[in-house]
């Protein structure tokens, strides 16, 4: 069976990876090479790399960085930020991207979606949507890093990008971004019910137990987060073990699985009991034959 996916979203601002809070505050993490390497080793299913300052500064993502990152990436790499033409897509893919993500430029020129799809295929195009719950109770789309409101109703826009040929939707909640209170499952549900292409949910994960709700309550095909994966050892593996324990089918190829370990109500790994600790023996991991 097709597995659900756990996606790590790396936000890049001025060539540095950052954590984002509410689309307006940013904490620096550092060189993109390191998070990319550890995420790859820790069983992540996909990586989304977004240059959040490119579009506003009217420039492209730094292709040199992309080339270096792609060399140590062996999971699908989706790249976004600054794409305004088919030629940009070609450059990004040449530099090592597998898929591209477009956001503001799709809102300003929706024909761009179809143009990219006709050349690179639907599976190559991820449309990223930044949504916010307006005071009248309707989810609307915001553009330019969530700063400028548009009249687009989120579910209508989702249907439109589907009909224009988009392969997936990366759904971000501005309200929940960096909030650590979990996904906006109402939003996810509204969009998954509106379209039949896969939805990637993002925004708001504060502990590892939140991932499962995006799939169970929201109906997402993939769950993504950014901030939580930094500063925690084996973050993506622990997230996956939480998903597995919630009964969700997900790929787990790593040697360290945390199988049988207990998690607290926030999804954090619990300490082992003294008795269990004393039983641990060190074993040598299987050698990789590649």
């Amino acid at each position: 069976m097709l597995k659900k996916r756990l996606i790590a979203c790396l936000l890049m601002k001025d060539d540095l990876i950052v954590q984002s809070i509410g689309f307006n505050k940013y904490l620096p993490i550092g060189n993109p090479k390191f998070p990319l390497e550890f995420l790859n080793k820790w069983d992540v299913d996909e990586i989304v790399l977004l240059d959040i300052s490119a579009y506003k500064q009217k420039r492209k993502l730094n292709l040199k960085i992309l080339e270096v990152l792609s060399k140590s990436c062996f999971v699908p790499l989706t790249v976004g930020g600054g794409i305004t033409s088919v030629e940009d897509v070609r450059k990004y893919i040449r530099a090592g991207a597998d898929k591209v993500s477009i956001n503001s430029s799709a809102i300003n020129n929706s024909k761009l979606i179809t143009e990219i799809v006709n050349i690179f295929g639907s599976q190559c195009v991820v449309v990223s949507m930044d949504c916010k719950l307006d005071k009248d109770g309707i989810y609307r789309i915001y553009k330019d890093s969530g700063k400028i409101p548009t009249n687009l109703v989120a579910s209508d826009w989702a249907k439109e990008v589907e009909s224009l040929g988009a392969g997936e939707i990366f759904l971000n909640s501005i309200d929940r971004d960096g909030s650590k209170i979990g996904y906006d499952n109402n939003l996810i549900k509204e969009i998954t019910e509106a379209v039949s292409i896969p939805i990637i949910a993002c925004g708001g994960v504060g502990d590892f137990s939140h991932f499962a709700s995006g799939i169970i309550k929201g109906g997402a095909s993939a769950v993504a987060a950014g901030n939580i994966f930094h500063y925690i050892e084996h973050s993506t593996i622990i997230a996956k073990m939480n998903l597995l324990q919630s009964g969700i089918d997900i790929r787990m190829d790593s040697e360290a699985t945390y199988k049988g370990r207990e998690f607290d109500k926030n999804g954090r790994l619990m300490m082992m009991s003294r008795e269990d600790l004393s039983k641990i023996e060190f074993t040598r991991g299987k050698e990789d034959i590649i």
């Binding site: 069976m1 097709l2 597995k3 659900k4 299913d45 599976q123 392969g167 292409i197 896969p198 993939a222």
Partner: peptide
């Protein structure tokens, strides 16, 4: 062929 409950494109990790 489109089937109820199976989103297309077929994207992700499969056995």
């Amino acid at each position: 062929p489109h089937m109820e409950g199976y989103r297309l494109p077929h994207v992700g990790w499969n056995d």
